[in-house]
Write a protein that binds this DNA or RNA. Structure first.
Lengths: 114, 114
DNA sequence: CTTAAGTGATACCATTTGGTATCTCAAGGT
DNA sequence: ACCTTGAGATACCAAATGGTATCACTTAAG
């Protein structure tokens, strides 16, 4: 499996889908509820949800005659880790934060301005 | 602010382009050199490079009659930060690491774990 | 059972996308 | 000058994409 994260990046490639993720970050929603937040048909939203589900970014659970879509942020990890490879190119990463903490350790003046 | 990071995610949405980024992570290359690593024509690679450049992920500098494409990993930051919003959903983030460091700072008993 | 509400599944459409082939332009080597 | 080499620009094509409209299925409510 050369690229298991392709479905993830593919899902993230559309702004509507990214918005849906943020939306589901607030609370799980049915298809109709999600569609209520966009200027497009329920069918179109459904398609996006399929792509998101395809990337594992959401989980769908039936509730009566409804389908509740929930965010699965954990699926973002592979993409995040892929990006992490490039950390080596911008030193000003959290390395800065780490350095700051280390500084407090070595330069132990006992002060901070939290 | 209609999604300034759309070009970035769009660029990342294609596996070939992600491969090109990794490739340019090794060293800057001309179009022909990049194309040499893929089973497609130079023109096709050029298109990908345009998309990457569109997302600010690479920079192009002329060198004689050649064009040298260099990685600009910094452009990944917006996407990375966007993803960071979802950190709140998987507590086992780098918060663990951060906590570990903080522990060493506050609990400076001079011991460490294995 | 009948009716309405929430989905799923197709069929269809316009646009975008990834790719090739081809032609022209610019820069070097001889 | 000549000819080669690297790159840009189109034109063109097949397939994927985002979207709608429509119909069938399933569940809840009378």
């Amino acid at each position: 499996m050369p690229d298991a994260l392709q479905p993830v990046f593919r899902a993230l490639g559309d702004p509507t889908r990214r918005d849906i993720l943020r939306l589901l970050g607030q609370e799980p929603m049915t298809i109709a509820e999600v569609a209520d937040n966009f200027a497009m048909t329920r069918a179109a939203v459904k398609k996006h949800l399929v792509v998101l589900s395809d990337g594992g970014l959401i989980t769908v659970a039936p509730r009566g005659r409804e389908k509740v879509n929930s965010l699965n942020a954990l699926a973002l990890k592979p993409a995040l880790e892929w990006m992490g490879w490039f950390d080596q190119f911008w030193d000003e990463r959290l390395d800065a934060l780490k350095t700051a903490i280390e500084k407090e350790t070595t330069d132990d003046t006992g002060h901070n301005n939290g």
